[in-house]
Each structure stands twice: as C-alpha cells, then as structure tokens.
Design a protein around this nucleic acid. Structure first.
Lengths: 141, 141
DNA sequence: TTCACTGCAAACACTTTGCAGAATA
DNA sequence: TATTCTGCAAAGTGTTTGCAGTGAA
C-alpha cells in the first residue's frame, strides 16, 4: 500500500535534499491542518500547542525552505506580517474583508486573461501577479 | 490673479487644520517634482539635497498626514519599503519590471468592472483594491 | 560521519513614538 | 498665545543571521 499524502510530501522533499527534522515534520503537519492563512507567529503558536518545541527562527527558515520547494506560497497583505498557504491548490486571488479580516479566495479567468493582454500590449510577460480586493459586506439598500 | 497649484494645495491643507511648516512645504515641493515612486528614505534624500533640513521622522509623519488628507497614496510592493505617489491623478494599477524595478502605471476598465462583479457576486462591495503585475520584458521568439 | 539543521541572541530594515523645545496660525 | 509640529533618540515590529552545537541520512 502506498504512503499517505503527508509521507509522500516528505519523501519528495527528502529527494530534493531537504532533511525532514522533527521540527519540519511538525510544521508540515500544522500547515496541512490549516484551512486559513496564518502568519509565522501563528504557525509557531500552533506548533507549540501541538507540543512540538520549535523556535521562531526555525519557523521562518522552514517557511522559506518550503516556499523555495514550491510547497507553500507567501501572501503579503497591506501592512500585515506575511501569511502562508499551501501551494498545491490551483491559482487564485484573494478578497480581504476589511471589517473581519477574513480572507476569501476566488478565481476569475477573464481577469487573468485581461492581465496577460495588458502586459503583452506593453511588451511584457507576466512573471507573477497580485490581485487583492479589500471588501466590505454589502448592505441592503 | 489666482494662486499657483502648489499654493492652492497648501491653502487647502491649512484649511483642514494642517500647518504648513518649512519642512512640509519642502516635502510638498519634492513630491510635486516626482515623476516616479520614491520611498521615505529617497524623499528624505531629495529634501536634503534641496537643502531643506528635514528629519526622517518628520518625513514619515508628514507622509502619514498627507495620506490622511488624500494628497498622496501609499504603495506597498513585495518586500520593499513603502513608496508614495501623488493622489491627484486618476486611478491606475501598477506593473513592476522584475528585472529593473521600474514601475509602470496602467488602467484597464474591463478589469476594474470584472473585479466589482466578482465581489458583488459574493455579496461584497470593494473598498479598495490592489493589482500588481510583476513582469519581464518580452523576448522575441 | 558528514553536513544540513537548530536554538539562541544579536542584528536588521523599516517605521513609530515620547519628550522637550520650536514654530505656525 | 495655543497648539501643532519638529528633532532626537529610543522603542517597536517582523524577519534574518552568525555561531556553536545537534541530529538526519
């Protein structure tokens, strides 16, 4: 029988020359359990809560490493500390509810296409982009 | 004869209860002369170069004040210190050439409209948004 | 048995702030 | 004259790093 998802990921990382230490395994577990977009301090808190014993410096170093391996993506919203999300999903952009701080993911192919067109028209190709809608719940009129 | 643009702006600020000090006048002049997107340190440098004698702390405080007055906008690109631009222009988004760091402004009504639609579909209205295309000059194939 | 990784604490980059004196309106 | 503003230096926040020791492979 084959490995589970987490083990597969660890194997892949090992193959890339990344050592799976106790701390990294703990952080991978914390990240896998996320359905939100935590920052480094929050990930550190969750790892501690799970009894992991990881220093904050290691959290930062691990996040950088995992990003370099394409395992997670870094989100930098306005003035906040950087947040992180698993990278294995399909591309999407973010809406941030300015009242609650909640982050909602969305995609829109037409917007994506238009972005590429705009860039192309000016002689550029897009390396990556960032689209954030800072929104408020609509009030009935 | 009417005041020039700069003086009009100063009057408007004064009316809003903002005192026009030597330092603020100097910074307003530096900002008016900008056709790029400088950060606080760069604005400080330019003010110094103009012989203004302004402390960096005052540059930061002034930028905050001018932003609150709607005179300038704050731009926060990836990992860089915040940059600033005059707010009196029409809305636009930014392309950042990842090779040169150059910032190019652009607008696209269709993208704007689609953003509003996406938000509306999910029951939100947009407070503000941020669209940045990190691009590279197109190589001929 | 290597060599990547870790914790610690110090350093870092950018920005904000408390205070006492200076300057605007 | 009443505040608002300024400079200075110190503090703050989020993040990175040097070093000596630890542990994965």
């Amino acid at each position: 029988m084959s490995n589970d998802r987490a083990t597969q990921l660890e194997d892949a990382l090992r193959e890339a020359g990344v050592r799976i230490t106790r701390q990294r395994a703990a952080l991978l577990a914390v990240l896998a359990a996320c359905d939100d977009h935590p920052d480094a301090a929050e990930l550190h808190r969750r790892a501690e809560a799970a009894g992991a014993g990881v220093s904050l410096a290691t959290v930062y170093r691990t996040l950088t490493t995992l990003q370099a391996q394409g395992v997670i993506d870094k989100l930098e919203f306005q003035g906040e500390p950087a947040r992180w999300e698993p990278a294995d999903q399909q591309h999407h952009d973010h809406m941030i509810d300015v009242e609650t701080g909640q982050v909602i993911e969305f995609t829109n192919d037409r917007i994506e296409r238009l972005q590429a067109e705009v860039a192309a028209e000016m002689g550029y190709e897009i390396v990556h982009h960032r689209l954030e809608l800072y929104v408020r719940r609509r009030t009935r009129r």
